[in-house]
Design a protein around this nucleic acid. Structure first.
Length: 748
RNA sequence: GCGGAUGUGGCGGAAUUGGUAGACGCGCGGCGUUCAGGUCGCCGUGUCCGUAAGGACGUGGAGGUUCGAGUCCUCUCAUCCGCACCA
């Protein structure tokens, strides 16, 4: 600077130096819980080990990181940790393509992705980082499986899957292309398969009920709440008991409370508990079997092709009309869950289509006139009571794949299905699996499959299905609360640690708006573990006090995809502009709750902003150093610029106030705009002073530098590298102040 | 088919939640500065009519509520995203 030239803005150098400093200071380690302090556990989503961080991740973690840094600056203890959801089909496919084992594949991917995330400067506590495919982690899935099995919340059922006879393997939907196997292109058929299910239905009603409290808490955003409502799928209506032709009664439901007289049939879910006994010794039992094994192919989702079984049963009409025939159809499940409903063709399009198939064209019903026409709704029949149904259904958690958490079950010839005792966990997954796409590599491993029965000690075979990644996600947010040094303990010990009580419930989840199912499942399991005991300290069973669901990054109004050639590569952006610019741009470009339509102009704008701030700040510092306009105002006659300095102060106050508000609400785009606006105001202030007086007096300059310093402080959460570097430049070698300015105190 | 969103200039997007639509920026045009590497400053920029002052029309479309609607209601059109062995 002594030669008169100012340092140019070099993001690559600045960011490398700041990141080295953070590493050295271990700056983002979650603090010990020994000291009583306000605490926040901020949970980012655990990405799949795809091999590359995409721009959507950058958006998600930029929002979370900005919030985490803001909270730390306000003096709160923050737990912001990261891990990979590393089991799953894509890892198997990646391993096949690369000729390596899935464990090598995910390790390679994770290493690269961590490098990308570090380069972006996210303030994760890396010591707490995890991979869900580490035995030390997936033992949680196994423990949870046994715990829920014991509580009756995991059960055995049957499901249908796509099967390729040639490859002797189960196929995922994405592996079926036009009804053909992705690998051998032979026709695929649906088969029935025993499956493990998670009984989420046990907690649907409570999850629904608690939404009110979550909404009242004010830190669940509307998007997240709406997605919970959607997942739960609450339907309000009436239920009533109808007498059957065999003398037994059946409880049926309908949301059309004023049209009960228009019912023409009763539709029952194939999963309804009564269906099993009805089908015994019935001619239509095989039809039902076909319906069940037929599964729900995409082509038969529509009501007019959906499988339908006509039973020999009828139920008395609730209003004394013709008896109602009983049919079994899976169209019930998607609308009302595993229940029985009144079929009312005149109120429901699906029912109308079913009626057409049952009775031919629907003729004018002889039942009373449409109640809406004469205004007076007919009273519901006696015995009818208000009732609720939920669309959320139990879901399968087992997969016929090798790259997943082994299910801790053995099959013994004498004892049958035997859950392993928890002391025998974990059941280790062989790491040298080499999937080919044929068969099931895990089932073919004799060293894995053959075991002894924990009950009788005789020969037994292990379950070779693994758990779906969804199941891992149920608990992934728990062990992160515990420091790595404690992670080796038994789960019972870990669950008893104060760390869990200190960090839970998690203050905020920041995740994509497609995470509704995950969050719902996590809320369900938390309630289960509350009732079972380990999470009993979470009285309301809510794992997350707050939740922000952001929308995705799109381009040209469409989802990014290689196929469309509209993919934005974060690495290229970071190389060209630096991490600060990229982070600022994704925050600035749109409100988190809105989809971000990518355009170059946001990056351009942010780059210019940062560079101008850098140049301007250094020019002002140099001016002070060179003693320009160092005269105090007292020696210059009347103070003609006092009102401008006052106004600058006012602007600073307003800016801090607004930015603080924005950050509390996670309105990052608005916060960035307000930061930028403050810079405009600082420049405007200088311009006005110069217009008034022709030069800055000492007080003017100090006010300006003070404002710039404040600007750098509030910029830290958004663009941490450059902001800290600016503070360092202004500090003259002293400590830098990165605490959050108190909106009340700025001007005093 | 079912479900969820979104429609504002050439473009990205604002609008204190019912009160002057188009903030801020990109792009474009003009002037100046600098002249090589995506410089900086100032001015202009919704559409149409007009030399101008000025006027008319304008938030996908059609109705409605209101003193007043981008915002609330009804219908409609278009686009996007999901639909459970992808995570």
């Amino acid at each position: 600077m002594s030669d008169g030239t100012l340092p140019p803005y070099d993001p690559q150098a600045i960011e490398a130096s700041r990141q080295a400093d953070w590493r050295e200071r271990d700056a983002f380690r979650a603090p010990e819980i020994a000291v009583e302090a306000p605490r926040k556990y901020i949970k980012p989503s655990a990405p799949f080990t795809s091999g590359n961080i995409h721009i959507g991740h950058v958006r998600s973690y930029s929002i979370g990181d900005t919030y985490a840094r803001f909270c730390r600056a306000r003096g709160e203890d923050v737990l912001f940790a990261f891990g990979f959801d590393s089991f799953g089909l894509p890892a198997e496919l990646g391993a096949i393509a690369g000729g390596v084992s899935p464990s090598d594949w995910v390790a390679r991917c994770a290493e690269h992705m961590i490098g990308q995330l570090e380069r972006l400067g996210f303030s994760f506590d890396w010591e707490r980082a995890f991979m869900s495919s580490d035995a030390n982690m997936y033992r949680w899935s196994q423990w949870l499986f046994l715990t829920l099995l014991d509580a009756g919340l995991v059960y055995r059922g049957t499901g249908t899957v796509d099967w390729c006879d040639t490859c002797q393997t189960t196929l995922a939907t994405i592996q079926v292309e036009n009804g053909e196997c992705w690998r051998c292109h032979k026709t695929v058929r649906l088969i029935q398969q025993p499956q493990w299910y998670l009984r989420i239905s046990a907690y649907v009603a409570e999850n629904d009920r608690r939404l009110e409290d979550l909404a009242a808490g004010g830190i669940w955003d509307e998007n997240a709440l709406a997605s919970q409502r959607f997942v739960i799928g609450r339907v309000d209506g009436l239920e009533l008991d109808l007498d059957g032709s065999d003398g037994e009664t059946l409880t049926v439901f309908t949301p059309h409370t004023h049209a009960i007289g228009l019912a023409r049939f009763v539709a029952v879910s194939p999963r309804h508990p009564r269906v099993e006994e009805w089908a015994r010794d019935q001619v239509w039992a095989t039809e039902l079997e076909d319906l069940r094994s037929g599964g729900l192919e995409r082509s038969s989702r529509e009501a007019h092709t959906m499988p339908l079984v006509q039973t020999d049963r009828t139920l008395a009409s609730p209003t004394g009309g013709e008896p109602l025939p009983v049919i079994i159809t899976p169209t019930v499940d998607g609308r009302f869950g595993a229940t029985a409903i009144l079929g009312i063709p005149e109120r429901d399009r699906t029912d109308a289509l079913i009626a057409e198939r049952l009775f031919g064209s629907v003729t004018e019903s002889a039942t009373p006139a449409d109640p809406d026409e004469n205004g007076a709704a007919p009273p519901p029949p006696s015995g009818a009571r208000t009732a609720v149904r939920y669309r959320a259904n139990d879901f399968t958690i087992s997969r016929q794949r090798s790259w997943g958490t082994p299910i801790p079950i053995v099959y013994c010839e004498t004892c049958g299905t035997v859950p392993l005792p928890k002391e025998q966990l974990p059941v280790l997954l062989p790491l040298d699996l080499k999937p080919t796409g044929e068969g099931n590599p895990l089932a073919e491993r004799e060293d894995f499959v053959n075991t002894t029965c924990p009950s009788c000690g005789g020969d037994a075979r292990r379950e070779t299905d693994t758990l779906d990644c969804h199941f891992d996600a149920l608990w992934l947010w728990v062990p992160v609360c515990v420091p790595p040094s404690e992670r080796e303990r038994t789960l019972e010990e870990i669950l008893a640690l104060d760390d869990l009580r200190a960090w839970l419930p998690c203050e905020r989840v920041v995740a994509g708006s497609d995470s509704g199912n995950f969050v719902f499942d996590q809320r369900t399991v938390t309630k289960a573990l509350r009732d079972i005991g380990p999470l009993g300290f979470l009285g309301d069973g809510e794992p997350f006090a707050g939740c922000l669901f952001h929308e995705m990054v799109i381009a040209d109004g469409r989802k990014m995809s290689k196929h469309l050639g509209n993919v934005v590569d974060p690495d290229e952006l970071v190389a060209a502009y630096g991490a600060d610019t990229v982070r600022l741009a994704v925050l600035y470009a749109a409100a988190p709750q809105r989809s971000l339509n990518w355009s170059d102009s946001a990056v351009q704008r942010c780059r210019r902003f940062l560079r101008q701030l850098w140049d301007y700040s250094h020019a002002q510092l140099a001016a002070r150093e060179n003693g320009e306009n160092a005269e105090p105002v007292s020696e210059m006659g009347a103070d003609k610029t006092e009102h401008l300095r006052k106004r600058l102060e006012q602007w600073c106050d307003t800016a801090v106030e607004k930015i603080t508000e924005d950050l509390v609400e996670l309105e990052m785009h608005s916060a960035v705009r307000n930061v930028m606006r403050l810079f405009d105001r600082v420049k405007d202030y200088e311009k006005r002073v110069l217009a008034k007086r022709g030069s800055l007096c000492a007080e003017d300059r100090e006010a300006l530098l003070g404002a710039l310093q404040l600007l750098a402080r509030v910029l830290v959460p958004f663009a941490p590298h450059i902001a800290e570097q600016l503070l360092i430049a202004a500090s003259d070698g002293g400590e830098i102040d990165t605490t959050w300015p108190d909106p009340q105190l700025v001007s005093r």
